[in-house]
Amino acid sequence: MRAPGDLTVRVPEAAGELPTPPREHPEEPAAENELFMHLEPDQFVVETSRPVMRARLNRRAIAALWALRVFAVAVSAMVIYTFVSQLH
């Protein structure tokens, strides 16, 4: 049964890539169909495999990100240098 407002997707057995075991009682709804009703449409692997659009960053944001990156690398290098010098 589908709850009111439920946005999940019904998956006919023929479309799936999974092998479908033979049914003993064809008149009953297939258990595997019922199972896929509980994933949201954008939750399927085929949907999440599609890349999201690139964000448009302005120049200031890009410059700030690069500044932060350079700073983090520089401080990391200092920490590693200190670590190595303390070993000797």
């Binding site: 997707v9 998956v11 479309a15 799936g16 999974l18 199972l35 009703m37 399927f44 085929v46």
Partner: peptide, 23 residues
């Protein structure tokens, strides 16, 4: 079209099984 299924992988099957219990 909303009822048409996307390609379903074993990963979807396993996740959907967990989600059915939540549901």
């Amino acid at each position: 079209p909303v009822l048409l299924p996307p390609a379903v992988t074993p990963q979807d099957a396993a996740r959907s099984s967990d989600r059915s219990r939540v549901h």
